[in-house]
Amino acid sequence: MELKIYGDTVSRVGVRQITPQIYWISHCLGECAVEVNGGFAADFAKLNPILDPEASDIIYNSFLFMDEKTLLVDTLSPGQHDTVLEALSDILGDRKLDYCWISHTELPHAGNIAAIQRAHPGLEIMTVANHDHYEVHGLADATLLNYGDVIDLGEHKIEIIKPLFVDHALTQWFYEHNTGFLCPVDWALNVHRADQCFRFMDEMEEVGYSVEQFMHEVSTTSRVVFPWIRWADPDATGEAVDKFFEQYDVKIFAPSHTNVIRKDLDKYTAALSQAMRMAIVGNFDLVF
């Protein structure tokens, strides 16, 4: 596996190549996951006994497009404020970073925006239009994008699309037409064990992971990530997922907190539709 690692524990960042022009820059904790996050993912296993209680590590993703123009998707989280800059400058070499697209303004996604802007003067920050009060989110000077807008990088044409599932109001997804690259942001969060770090989903299958496990994880994590779905309709939601994948020919499924899926997409998209139906009717375990 070709992998370059920067930093360790909370600052650890791994870089892999998805295509010759798209890099996957991700953070996860590895061996120290339980120590740092208190066995966070084991809590999910309590909610759903089918889940692996040893799988306590969560992924934070960023993606870099190296085309005629360069574009970074999200910034990783405050814990990686140094290493993300290091990884970026290694990949970019003497090229400059042209754009940074912010999927939504929470710190795990946008927390290093100021540091990246300082390191790359002239960087154009892009985020969701149709909102208000950007200054309190630290995005006063951002270029605002509407659904249907296309960022033309050269070979890659990134279209801003309406998310199926949102938590933060300032959220959008994108779809890149030539590679079939979809970034559905916080959707489809899964977990992994310390011996499963920095793997594409097809490589996860080589170390004991399965599409069934993925389905059960997403059905459980969706209740945490999108707590509002308990108020949604399971059939309407499942149908919306099916329709979405009919509309977009996804070849690379690249969320913010999931192993990048580059093979057997159909099997995983079917699992996602089922997972969302299961999520809605499951136990949310809330304290009122």
């Binding site: 949102v166 109001a169 308990r230 108020w231 309407a236």
Partner: peptide, 17 residues
């Protein structure tokens, strides 16, 4: 404006919670 998911939700369920 703040909770863009609300149109996907059943308002009676929200209010009951």
């Amino acid at each position: 404006s703040a909770f863009r998911f609300l149109p996907q939700c059943d308002g009676n369920k929200v209010n009951a919670d």
